[in-house]
Design a binder for these strands. Structure first.
Lengths: 352, 352
DNA sequence: ACGACTATAGTAACCGTTTACTATGAGCTT
DNA sequence: AAGCTCATAGTAAACGGTTACTATAGTCGT
C-alpha cells in the first residue's frame, strides 16, 4: 500500500522539527507562536520542516506549560431535544468563532452524570462549563451549584447557568436566560383576545423553574384580563410528547371538555395533546384552540401558534458571557421571547 | 465576598496532596491509580488529603506522561438535524459507558472546518474521530479522507466513517454504515404494492452517496415490479425542508401532477413537500401518497410512513468500533433499516 | 576604535503526572 | 546471626512544550 511520507509520525515532536530545521526548540516554538522576532530565513526553514514532518503541537504539553486548552463544555439533558440542540448549535458556533473547542455533553437528566462531567471539566482545566436547562431549585440543588461554582472558579473555569435561575451574588457564576414568563403572558393574552376564557394549562410541574415561570405568565395574563384563575385548569405532568398525550387523554376520559383552548407547556406537549384530541374526534383549531411554547421546528409543520425562544442565540450568549470575561463584564444576559402566530387558534364563537 | 475553604485551590497539585498526607508524590499517584500495593494507613491518609484539598488530577499532565486522555470526537454537519442529533446522542452514551469524553463538533458542511477539527483532534491526541454523514465522493474527497486517515493513524487516533462509504482496504479507517438502499427498496415496494406506478422521487442529488443509494433502491424496486424507470420522475435538489418545499412547488407550478405518490429523499423533504401540496389544495394521503426516509421524530406527528434508520445505534456502533479496537477487530459495521407504516399512503383507486 | 545597543538564537527551568529503579526495614530460612 | 525475600515508599527521569534568562554578533554613535 502506498503510504505518504507523513505517515509514521507518531511522536513527531518539536524536537524533531528543530533538528530538521537545524535550530533549537525554542526557536521553533517562537516561530510557531509568532510572538517573538525571528529572522525570515529561520522562519521559513522552520515552516518548511513543520510541513515536511506534518507536525502538530501537543495541546497537553502546551496546556501544562500554561497555555489554556481553549475548551468549553456545554452540558444538556439530551441533544435530541430540539431546544437543547439549538442551544448547543449556537454555543458551538460562537465557540468556533472565538477559536475554542466546544464539548457537548449529555446527562440524561441525571445529577450524578452532571457531577461527573463537572469533575471531568475541572480535570481538563476547561475555560468554561455551561449548564443548560430547567431545574427544580431545591435547597440541595442550590448547594450543589454553589459547590460547582466555587470548585470550578478555583480551577480557573467559568460556570454559566443557561436557562436556569441565577445563584446568589456571592457565587462566581454567570447566567444566560430568556424571558419565560413574558412569552407565556403574550401567548395567553393571544388566546384571551380571541375570546377564550377556559384555558387549560397542560404540563405545569410545581417547582420546575421553566414550567413555573410559564404558569406565572399565564396567570398574570388571566388576571390582567379579569379572568379568574382556576387551579383545576392547571394540569401537572411535566413536559414532552408522551406527557402531553397522557395528560390530554386522561382529561378527556374524565368527562366532556371544560375548556375551549389549551396552553401546552411546550411544543412536544402540544404534539402529544393534539394526538389525544384527534383520537377523541376533536379538531384543532375548529373545536379547540391550542398554543405551545418553544417554537420547535416541527411546530411550523403542524401549524402551531407558539412562543419563539431564541435558543441558538441563548447558546451564543452563554459562550460570549464565558469568554469575553473581563472582571467588569456583565454577569447576566436576558433574552426576549416572542409569539409566532400560525393556525391553531380560532376566535371563540360558541362559548362553553 | 465570602469564599469557601475549597475556593482558592487553583493549582492544587499532587505535590500539595503529598505534603498534606506526609508522603511522596509517587505514593499519592499510586494510591489514586490503585495499581500498586499501598499500606491501608497510607491509603487513608492520602484519600483524606485528597478530600480536604478537593484535588483533581490534571489531565494534561497525565496525558503527557503517557495516559490517554480518553477523548472521542464526533463530527457532524449540524446537531440540529435530528438524524445527526440521534447519532451524536448514541455516540455520547456509548462513550460515557466506556468512560470516555465525547466531543461533538459541527462543521456546517464546510470542508475547511472539518479539516480544522481533524487538526485539532490530532493536537488533542484524541482516541478517535468519527466523521458522520453523507458526502459526494469526488476524487478530491477520497484524497482528503485518505490523508486524514494516515495523519490520524500516525498520531494514534482512529478514524471512523459513519454513514458514508468505506475507503480502500489500505487506508486505516473504520466504517459504520446502515442499509440505505435496502430501506429505499422496501418503502418503494410498499408504494408499488398499494398500486402506485408513478412515484416521484424528490431530492435525488447525483453524486451524493446517501441520495444515490436511495435512488438505487427505488429503481431496483421499480425494476423488480416491472415498472419502467422514468428519469423525469427523479427530481434533483438535495435534502432538507426548504428543498422539499421548493421542489414540490416548482413541480406543481409546471403543470398538473403526473404522479400519484411521492418518495421524499428524507423526512424533512417530505415535510416541505407536504406544505407545498397543502398550499396547492392537495391532501395527503387522499390525493397523493407520500413516504419519507429517516423516521425523524416529527414523522410520527404528521403520520408519515417512512424508513427507520437506527441512528442512535449507528453512533454507538461507531464508538464501539473505535474503542474496542484490537487489531483483529472488525473494521466495518452495517446496520439494517426497516420501514415504519403510518398513514400517508393509500391504495391507488383512480389511476392517473 | 570602543562601548552600548539591537536583533536573534540558544540554554535550561518549569508545568504536574507516571513509573522504572532504588532504598529500607521486617520477617524468614538455615 | 547472616543472608533472603517481601512489602512498601522514595528518588528522579521522562513526557513535549513555553519562556525567562543568557549569549553572540552585528550596528551605531562618538
Amino acid at each position: 500500500m502506498p503510504r505518504g511520507r507523513t505517515d509514521r509520525n507518531e511522536g513527531v515532536t518539536i524536537r524533531d522539527v528543530a533538528a530538521r530545521a537545524g535550530v533549537s526548540v525554542a526557536t521553533v516554538s517562537r516561530v510557531l507562536a509568532g510572538n517573538y522576532p525571528t529572522a525570515p530565513a529561520t522562519r521559513s526553514k522552520v515552516m518548511r520542516a513543520v510541513r515536511d514532518l506534518d507536525y502538530v503541537v501537543n495541546v497537553h504539553a502546551r496546556a501544562l506549560a500554561g497555555i489554556s486548552a481553549k475548551m468549553i463544555a456545554v452540558v444538556v439533558d439530551a441533544v435530541t431535544a430540539p431546544f437543547y440542540a439549538y442551544v448547543a448549535q449556537g454555543a458551538e458556533e460562537q465557540a468556533a468563532e472565538d477559536g475554542r473547542l466546544c464539548l457537548i455533553c449529555t446527562t440524561g437528566g441525571d445529577p450524578a452524570r452532571e457531577l461527573a462531567i463537572v469533575k471531568l471539566m475541572r480535570e481538563q482545566r476547561a475555560d468554561a462549563v455551561i449548564l443548560v436547562g430547567s431545574v427544580v431549585p431545591s435547597e440541595d440543588y442550590t448547594a450543589r451549584m454553589t459547590q460547582y461554582a466555587h470548585a470550578l472558579s478555583a480551577a480557573g473555569t467559568r460556570l454559566v447557568l443557561c436557562g436556569r435561575p441565577a445563584l446568589g451574588p456571592d457565587v462566581p457564576a454567570l447566567t444566560a436566560e430568556y424571558d419565560n414568563a413574558g412569552g407565556a403572558y403574550a401567548v395567553t393574552s393571544h388566546l384571551l383576545s380571541a375570546g377564550h376564557r377556559r384555558i387549560l394549562f397542560l404540563g405545569s410541574s410545581p417547582g420546575g423553574t421553566t414550567a413555573d415561570a410559564r404558569v406565572d405568565g399565564y396567570r398574570r395574563a388571566l388576571a390582567d384580563h379579569r379572568v379568574p384563575v382556576d387551579p383545576g385548569l392547571e394540569v401537572p405532568g411535566g413536559f414532552g410528547r408522551p406527557a402531553g398525550y397522557r395528560m390530554m387523554r386522561e382529561r378527556l376520559a374524565a368527562g366532556a371538555p371544560d375548556f375551549t383552548a389549551v396552553f401546552a407547556g411546550d411544543d412536544l406537549v402540544a404534539a402529544g395533546a393534539l394526538q389525544a384530541l384527534r383520537e377523541a374526534g376533536l379538531r384543532v383549531p375548529e373545536d379547540v384552540s391550542m398554543v405551545g411554547y418553544n417554537d420547535d421546528p416541527f411546530a411550523a409543520d403542524i401549524g402551531l401558534t407558539t412562543v419563539h425562544i431564541p435558543a441558538e442565540e441563548l447558546g451564543r450568549a452563554a459562550v460570549r458571557l464565558a469568554v469575553r470575561g473581563a472582571d467588569d463584564a456583565p454577569v447576566r444576559a436576558m433574552l426576549g421571547t416572542h409569539i409566532v402566530v400560525r393556525d391553531s387558534v380560532r376566535p371563540l364563537t360558541r362559548p362553553l
